[in-house]
Amino acid sequence: MTGGSILHRAPAGLKLAALAMAGSAVVLVPDWRVMVDLFLLVALGFPLARLGRGALRAQLRPLMPMLVLLFFTQGLLASWEMAALVVARIATLVLMAALVTLTTRSEALIATVETLLRPLAPLGVNPGKVSLAFSLALRFLPVIAEEAERVREAQTARGLGHSPLALALPLIVRVLKAAEDIADAIDARSGHDDPSLRPHPETAPAPGRRFLFRSVKEQV
């Protein structure tokens, strides 16, 4: 993730706010020609953000079957203008959101989430706990994925094939057992009676997160 473009450098919070506003505005556009122009404009944002054509295709491809289906349903049920408007609108929304995600580091987005949650503290939302939950999920996602693979191998070795029950049940039991040990370890290490974890909001996320995200993405 090289951060050369203006989009890469813009603060995450600003990009999210802009996305929310643009997303709401797009819904108000009534003319399919304007909508298609907007779509092309957003698509142009990809090369401007130095993301390359592959990134654009990767965003649109999984959407294609649904868009085609929708186009014909709308065209036959309503009108072809309507069909073009709806399809272009969905594609535009998806591309705009993807543009934000692809030009913003995940840890910056986590930090934004935590900042957004801070005003909710009086309602019982503890940003420290939210942050711990994020960290734990990121820590154990690759572990559970590996564990799932191991369970699958073991079941195949025992001739149980790919029965979803034979896979899910042992995996869940292991996860629940591990959860107790992990909670004990956190309590043992935190030195808190009730850990209001991470009381230092000034702590910047460790740079190592970058490597982590990459490895999670490789894994999944």
Binding site: N126, K129, L132, A133, F134, S135, L136, A137, F140, L141, V143, I144, A145, A148, L171, I172, V175, L176, A178, A179, E180, I182, A183, I186, D187, S190, P195, V220
Partner: peptide, 18 residues
């Protein structure tokens, strides 16, 4: 929300992802 609750929440999120 206790520490143990947070761990359950995080691990089930990871499990759903897996």
């Amino acid at each position: 929300i206790s520490t143990r609750d947070i761990v359950y929440i995080a691990l089930f999120a990871a499990l759903t992802a897996a």
